[in-house]
Each structure stands twice: as C-alpha cells, then as structure tokens.
Write a protein that binds this DNA or RNA. Sequence first.
DNA 1: AATTATATCAACCGCTCTGGC
DNA 2: CGCCAGAGCGGTTGATATAAT
Length: 246
Amino acid sequence: MGRKPCCDKVGLKRGPWSIEEDHKLMNFIFNNGTIPCWRNVPKLAGLLRCGKSCRLRWINYLRPDLKRGSFTESEEDQIIQLHSHLGNRWSKIASHFSGRTDNEIKNHWNTKIKKKLKLLGLDPATHKPTENAEKTDGNKKQEESSETKSEDVPCKEAEGIQVTVDETNDLLKDYEMLYGSFDLDYSHASSFSMEESNNPSTSAQEADSLKQWVDCVDSFFSWGDHFIPLEEENSFPPWEISRIGI
DNA sequence: AATTATATCAACCGCTCTGGC
DNA sequence: CGCCAGAGCGGTTGATATAAT
C-alpha cells in the first residue's frame, strides 16, 4: 500500500499557471486573508489545481512582497554565509531575506553561486578550499567520480562539520577579492538593503501592499471578464506589470 | 539560418514535520 | 503514545530562453 496522494489528482490541471488561474487564486486570497487550509483553496477559488500547487504558486510567484530580479552581491554574500551555517535549509535561509523565496534562493544557489564557489576553488558543500579537502587514499577516487556527492550533505551541523563565523568571513573576503576581478554584470540587480530585509513591520504592511498591488494589476487587466492569454504578445506577468509600472 | 549545448527557473514529487485526535 | 491528515520543505525535472557552433 502506497502513501495516499495529497489530493485527488484526477482531472486536475498541471504545468504553468495561466493569468486567469493567478487571478482566481489572488482574488481568493485577497478576499479571505491568510489561508488556514490550502487543501480547500482550489475548490473554493474555482481552480482545477491541488492545494499544494496553489500554495506553491502563491509563495513563489504571486505574493505581492516578492522582490524578483537578480540577486545583489550583498545578497549573494549573505546566502553564502547563511549556507555555511544552515546547509541546504533553504526556507531558513530565505527567512533572512524579505521578498525572496526558498525556491528562488535554491535555484540561484544551484545555478550561480555553486559555480562561482567552484571557480574560486571552494567546495560549495563545505565552504572550504577544495585543495585542502581531505583526500585520503580510500576516498580520493570516489571524490573524483562524483563531484556532486559532497554537495548532498544536507547540513553541516548534522555532519559535525563546524565552520566558524570568522572562517566564513575569511573565505568571503577571499571570495569578494576574487569576485571583483570577474567581469560579472550586476547592472540589472535590484536594490537591496538589510534594513528593509529586517523590517519587522513588513508583514503588517502586507495587506496594504497586496491591495496596492491588486489595484495596480487591476488597472492593467480588466480582471472581470477578459483575460489576456499568456501566449499573446504584450501580456506581462504580474511582477513585470508592477515592476515596470504599467 | 539551423542546430546543438547550456543556463535558467517554475513546478512537481515525495519525504518529513507538526498538530489534532 | 500512536495514528493520521495536512502543511512545509528540499531535491529534481522539464520547458523555455539564450549562447555557441
């Protein structure tokens, strides 16, 4: 007997969300506030999605406080530092940033930061120089054969590996020095300030910002009866609309 | 211009955690 | 205390975009 599926997936839609679906979900959340039970959301909002999918869509894409855009250098530094302490606990890492999701940070780590660390000769899993990594007779071959194996370590604490703050900072200094020598383009990075990320009133302002955002989007889409198909030219995803101020 | 390789990121899968009973 | 349902999380996949040849 296998585990019961989280929801009845027969007849449920999968894949990319349409603007109409986004609208339905946003409308529902805006009208109902916090969601005590995501499982009921699709039925109540008139969506052919599972609750899990709705939750993910909201958290990763529709939330009005999402920042989007490229990560700044300081954000990357902070991610690296947090990762050295927390390992792959992306939600914990994301909790230190306002407007960034665990999925976004995870993707950025896997696609960008890991490569940069490797370029710098640092093991993304241990944050230590790879040339200093223990290469005992027994594990040398194994290490060569599976570069990603070491990255499977979920948490340094669990592994008993300690990276001190000082050690991480030293590595970061080296990283930043070398980093500056690369011709990396941050011209498109959005602005970021730690004050903003630590602002305790952010959640209190959520309702207002959500309303503002919905109003903003409302002014572009006629949210009532007509929706612009995703394929249609000149249709923009919500964050683009609010970002470029249409 | 066509094809192939690589990068990106939204979304899904399945496991773990948590709270209610 | 054990069981169950549901939420949350991290790993992975797959579609799409972009770059290289």
